[in-house]
Each structure stands twice: as C-alpha cells, then as structure tokens.
Amino acid sequence: MAKVIGGVFTSHVPAIGGAIQRGAQNEPYWKPFFDAWPPVREWLDVQQPDVVIMFYNDHGLNFFLDKMPTFAVGAAPVYRNEDEGWGLHPFPIPPGHTDLSWAIIEKLVEEEFDITTCQDMAVDHAASIPLALAWPGREAPVRIVPITINTVQHPLPSAKRCLALGRAVGKALAEWQGPEKIMVMGTGGLSHQLDGERAGFMNAEYDKFCMDNLSSDPDALTRHSVHEMVELSGTQGVEVLNWIAARGALGATARELTRTYHIPISNTAAAVMVLETEAAVQSGKASSEAIPAMA
C-alpha cells in the first residue's frame, strides 16, 4: 500500500541552478539558501521516497502560448530538461511513473478536473532545480509525475481550485495500491516580481502568512483572489499556487518539519520547507527504532 510521506516546498529561481553549476553554494550570497538543504536531505535519507509528484509551472519550455493548459499532468516514461535560452545546462531528470500518472489522471477527471495529459514533455528549471537541490550531483533516485499549473497567462486558476486539484491528487495517491513511498514537491515563489515598474517587489509579511498556514490551515491561503495574490506577492509570486496544490495532495494533516526563509535570491524571497504526514512519522520512527534491535 502506497504511503504519502510528506512534501518538500522550495523556490526554483534559475540563478540557484547557476550557483549549483558554478559550485557557488558556499559563497556568502548563496550559503544561507543552501544551508536549508542538509536537514531536507537527512529527512529524505530516512524516508527514502520512491516517487515524487512534482507541482510546478512551466516557463516557456514545454508550453508556449499556442496551447496553454491550466493544469497538465505528465504521463511519459521519460522527461527531458532542456536549454531554456539563458545559459543553464540541463540537469538529469529521473524517469516517469506512467501507471501512477494515469491513476492520477483517471481520478482527476473523475473529480471533474478537465486536465491536459502529456506523453511527451520537457520539464523546465522549476522541476529540475528542486530535484538537484534535494539529490545533488546525481539523478534523483525516484520516479516522477510532473503536474503543471498555469501561472503565466491570466486567467490563472484560483488558489481554491489549486488546493482542490491537490486534494484530488491526494485521493488518487491514497487509492494507489502500489508499495511506493510517495512525496510531493511544490516549487516556485515566494514573493517576487520581475516585470514592470514594481520589479523587485517582495512581501515578507505575506510570505510568512503563507508559510505559517501551509501545514495547519492551507484553506487560509485560498482567501485571496489571484489578483490579490499578485498584489500581495508580485506577478511571479503567484507561483505559490504550486505550493498550495502540493499541500493539498498531503491530505488533511501535515506537520511542519523545517523552514528556511531568505531574502534575496536574485529578485526573489526564497523559501524551503518540509512538511511530513503521519505516514512519514511512523516510517521514520520504525526505522530509528529498528537500529538498536538490529545492533
């Protein structure tokens, strides 16, 4: 029986990928952000997830404006990270989990989400950088199901709809009969704005509101309209929609394990969080209790 063990939530700023590829993690500018990751990796070492459900937004790699799905679910055996035009080398991307993809797709349509399915899909830095942060220097030892949310071309789906999407994914995961340990990732944000005369805008107060409520009361994040979210978090800060959807997939209760917030990474207020579920706590306890018994 599958277990949903928790989620890793992180900013996906392209410059992070550049810092990884230059080996700049210990430079003063970068260290506060990269210092968020050893505890995340320790948690991953204990939990040993087999699958990552990756909630993110595409930035003009797989989707152009000719066809722009509100929600798209990958159902490919392999995914590619490719040249996005501004100099980042592609990172390794683990294989897909097509059976689980289709189980999620079946459930989402049953739950009346009119999604797009992708059997051929390039995944951009918003998926590749979080994987490279979680499992540095190698292909992540998991299989993935990418789920994209349109945060590029308005109208965007509401936070309420994104949370409901995540919850429907969570139902599919709960019903999945495979033995896998499943985790989610929600990537992007937090507050930032790249375009317009307000470029450089960040809002620590709103970011804290999002982080404070993510585990215990994600519905609080749905009280703002997308327009209000743009005002509060910036034109690209709305990427927090990916976090909200990923949180939905964790089910009713999730416990905050780690949190790092740092200003700035590039133009962005960066954040990293780990939330875990009851399933994670139990499997974590089981493995730590097993150590003395084995010795």
Binding site: G60, F64, L65, H154, D195, G196, E197, H227, G234
Partner: peptide, 23 residues
C-alpha cells in the same frame, strides 16, 4: 496594481509574435 502589468488574454494576443520569437 501600480507598476504591475497583468499578462492576460489581451496582452497574450497582442504580444504573440514577440513572445513566439523569444520562445
């Protein structure tokens, strides 16, 4: 929102050629 340009349908339609080149 001051200093903020929402990339909506009108912008997407108007900007199609430029964005296609950039893509």
């Amino acid at each position: 929102i001051p200093g903020t340009h929402i990339f909506d349908g009108a912008a997407a339609q108007k900007g199609y050629a430029l964005n296609a080149m950039c893509y």
